[in-house]
Computed example of a mutant assay.
Amino acid sequence: MFIGAIVTSSLFSSALVLSLNANAQTPQSVKPNELRRYAKAMLTMEPQRQQAFDEIKKIIGSGEVPKIICNDNSSFSNLPSKAKDIAVNYCQRYQKVVEDNGFTIDRFNTITTQVQSNEDLKRQIYNILLRLQKNPESR
């Protein structure tokens, strides 16, 4: 159940995202070791993403949390300063986790785009997330 929530919220409806800049080049295929590292990054950051989202939601109140794209400063412009600080802190931590898992931001975003549009990759990520959650010491 938790993994399904991670996959759904992280890949499809996140209000806090790294940039998904369009890449005009043909995307490089995703290697199996990249999928595992990608899943590890997602598993690490999902609780932090949810916490940041919840904190921002409390600050904003009844309003809707705008989509926040980490490397698009204009996506932060309508946030109150405390919410902006939370979003910036989250984005900095996310970038570090992505890099600690051996990715550039561009490559991570390319994989995200491919996973969102490829059912086979979604299934593979889901299965990797299940294995990682069942066996946390293998992270």
Rank of each mutant, 00 (worst) to 15 (best):
F2T: 12
I3V: 11
G4N: 10
A5L: 04
A5E: 15
I6W: 03
I6T: 11
T8D: 10
T8C: 12
S9K: 09
L11H: 03
S13W: 05
S14T: 06
A15P: 04
L16Y: 01
L16T: 13
V17L: 05
V17S: 08
L18F: 07
L18G: 08
S19A: 12
A22H: 11
A22N: 09
A22L: 10
A24P: 02
A24F: 11
A24H: 08
T26N: 08
T26E: 11
P27K: 02
P27R: 05
V30M: 04
V30H: 06
P32C: 01
P32H: 01
N33I: 07
N33W: 01
E34M: 00
L35M: 12
L35F: 06
R37Y: 13
R37H: 13
K40M: 11
K40N: 15
L43S: 06
T44I: 09
T44Y: 05
T44N: 12
Q48I: 12
Q48T: 13
R49T: 15
Q50S: 09
Q51F: 08
A52N: 13
F53A: 01
D54T: 05
D54I: 00
D54S: 09
E55Y: 01
E55V: 06
K58E: 15
I60E: 10
I60N: 00
S62Q: 07
S62L: 01
E64G: 14
E64T: 13
V65C: 11
P66I: 12
P66W: 09
P66K: 08
I68S: 09
I68P: 05
I68G: 01
I69Y: 11
I69E: 15
I69G: 02
N73L: 12
S75D: 14
F76D: 09
F76L: 10
N78Y: 12
P80F: 01
S81W: 07
K82I: 10
K82F: 12
K84V: 10
K84T: 15
I86Y: 08
A87L: 07
A87I: 11
N89G: 09
Y90L: 07
Q92P: 00
Q92W: 03
Q92M: 14
Q92H: 12
R93V: 07
R93A: 14
Y94K: 05
V97M: 10
V98Q: 03
V98M: 04
E99K: 10
D100G: 02
D100N: 09
G102V: 11
D106S: 13
D106F: 05
R107F: 00
F108Q: 09
F108K: 09
T112W: 01
T113S: 13
T113I: 10
N118R: 04
N118S: 07
D120N: 01
D120W: 02
L121S: 00
L121R: 02
L121T: 02
R123N: 13
R123I: 14
Q124A: 02
N127Q: 08
N127R: 12
I128A: 04
I128F: 10
I128K: 03
L129A: 12
L130R: 02
R131H: 07
R131W: 06
N135L: 14
P136M: 06
P136E: 03
S138G: 04
R139V: 15
